[in-house]
């Protein structure tokens, strides 16, 4: 579980987060939404200690983030950032680096690390291109490698910043299945998503951000009942019950 209490954070004089309060529970999927520049990615970085936190406190599994070393934190939270370098290494090696926090100097990967990395690749269906260079893979394939790397990290909390970027619709559906599996295995999952429909479909809780604050927070049903999506994005979202479960869609006004 992650608890964020009265957190203010930002870059130098530019304070991005203002008095943010937020709880992500174990075994639940929490999705953070908000328009561009609302502070979603900064909030994730604050959880990881990647931006200076000027007030309040953040705890992961009861331990304060600011009292942990980077390696200790990496054993608690796996992080999939939004912008990533395309490293000149193989996909298999990339996933193996997910085991890095567990190594001690001189850091050499053990048999156990190779086995866990292979399992993570199998889970993401990428075992067949483990030997391929990251630069040779498509954007979607690379994204799967990064997710496998996060899985190999075997942390109780997984934080992903726009993980469905570059994934086609079929892969997005598979991804939502995987995320459900992770939450069912008692992991705390926090996602930043731009896709509201996907957020409504997979989340247990949605936190909407605006101007560096949590503007509204609730279950998908509560958020749907409010006018939050229209307030944030200027769109209306509707739901309809079908045989395949609740389906969500955007309601577009006719344009002349």
């Amino acid at each position: 579980m992650i608890e964020v209490k009265n957190v203010c954070a930002g870059y130098g004089r530019n304070q991005v987060l203002h008095d943010v309060n937020f709880v992500a529970e174990q075994g639940k999927i929490t999705v953070i939404i908000g328009s561009n520049g609302s502070g979603k990615s900064t909030l994730l970085k604050a959880l990881l200690g990647l931006v200076p936190v000027n007030g309040g406190n953040i705890t992961v599994e009861g331990a304060a983030v600011n009292e942990m070393t980077r390696a200790e934190l990496a054993k608690k939270i796996a992080y999939l950032p939004q912008g990533k370098n395309i490293a000149d290494i193989s996909a298999g090696r990339m996933v193996l680096h997910g085991r890095f926090p567990y190594l001690k100097y001189p850091r050499k990967y053990r048999e156990e690390d190779y086995r866990i990395a292979e399992e993570a690749m199998k889970q993401m269906g990428i075992s067949s291109f483990a030997g391929k260079q990251m630069a040779e893979l498509s954007g979607g394939m690379r994204q799967k490698v990064y997710i496998a790397m996060a899985l190999a990290q075997q942390t109780p909390v997984i934080v992903m910043d726009e993980p469905t970027t570059y994934l086609d619709i079929g892969q997005q559906l598979k991804f939502s299945g995987l995320i459900k599996q992770l939450s069912e295995s008692r992991k705390t999952v926090i996602l930043v998503l731009h896709d509201i429909l996907l957020a409504l479909k997979i989340s247990d809780k949605i936190a909407a951000m605006k101007d560096g604050k949590i503007f509204r927070c609730g279950t998908p049903e509560e958020m749907l009942a409010s006018d939050i999506f229209y307030t944030l994005y200027g769109v209306k979202v509707k739901a309809v019950q079908t045989d395949a479960g609740m389906q969500y869609y955007y309601e577009f006004a006719d344009t002349e």
Partner: peptide
């Protein structure tokens, strides 16, 4: 030669490298 893995992790980019525990 004892820091080869660390050198590889540095090339992954700042956020990814910090995310897997490297200062």
């Amino acid at each position: 030669f004892t820091l080869c893995n660390e050198l590889d992790v540095v090339t992954l980019g700042d956020e990814t490298a910090q995310g897997i525990g490297l200062p």
